[in-house]
Write a protein that binds this DNA or RNA. Sequence first.
DNA 1: CGATAGACCTGTTTGC
DNA 2: TGCAAACAGGTCTATC
Length: 272
Amino acid sequence: MPELPEVETIVRGLKPKLEGNRILEVEVYNENTIKNPESVKEFKERITGKKIIEVKRRGKYILFILEDFAHVIIHLRMTGQLIYSEKQLSFSHLRLEAKLSKGFLYFNDIRKFGTISLLAKEDLAKEKGFWTLGVEPLGESFGFEYLKSKLVSSKPIKNLLLDQRVIAGLGNIYVDESLFFAGISPFKPAKTLSPEEISKLVSSIKFVLTKGIENKGTSFSDFVDSYGGKGTNQNFLQVYGRGGEQCRICGKVLAKGKIAGRTTVFCLHCQK
DNA sequence: CGATAGACCTGTTTGC
DNA sequence: TGCAAACAGGTCTATC
């Protein structure tokens, strides 16, 4: 479900509701959702009673910083949903719920891949995927020089863009979309991109993500924002999910392939 | 080093 | 119609 624009949409929705709010009670319905600490009992003890000071996003992770500076690190993986409500609600795949001093927070997750960790600030390196994240693609440090410095291997460019240690937050949808806007084949070996292509790719990534956020995310099937509402970016996709359909630019049939185990859709005519 | 398959799960779509 | 296989926004591990 969620890539950077979807996670950003959730965080923007939760921020005004959770900051300053206090966690009164936590119920865990799926023990495997809690990744750290190992004991769910300890997780509950350490989180109960704490005030949430700040809510933010890093890559595809959602962070709650608590008053004791401990971090709640949430990853939604494929089907996780984080929903805030003033009133009590019920869900068919509820994995965790928290009663707050004002309202309720629900973690609903069909496939149970999502994870929640509670780590003291000095233990953040225990969350490996989080600790090793690369740059934020919408930040100033992501630009021509940075991307160029990372394009040293002959792996397909799509592999590099999906690597969270290189760029934090891109996933299958926005990588395919970015490569389409940049006119670059997803199979092109990373180190063979010309300076013009690198430059076009940087601006395409920023464009596609910015549009995704403006449209409040891509609700292909399960994504909902922090109030349970759907995004609209699925109506603007050029290639993702459109294999076999016509390219909106040249009219030719869009090709479908596999890269890094992921379905990849691209235009043989528009992407070289 | 890299590419690929399998694992983790459940639900929906596709193909025979 | 019915049922099994394939597939889905992600990432981690094992294996060759």
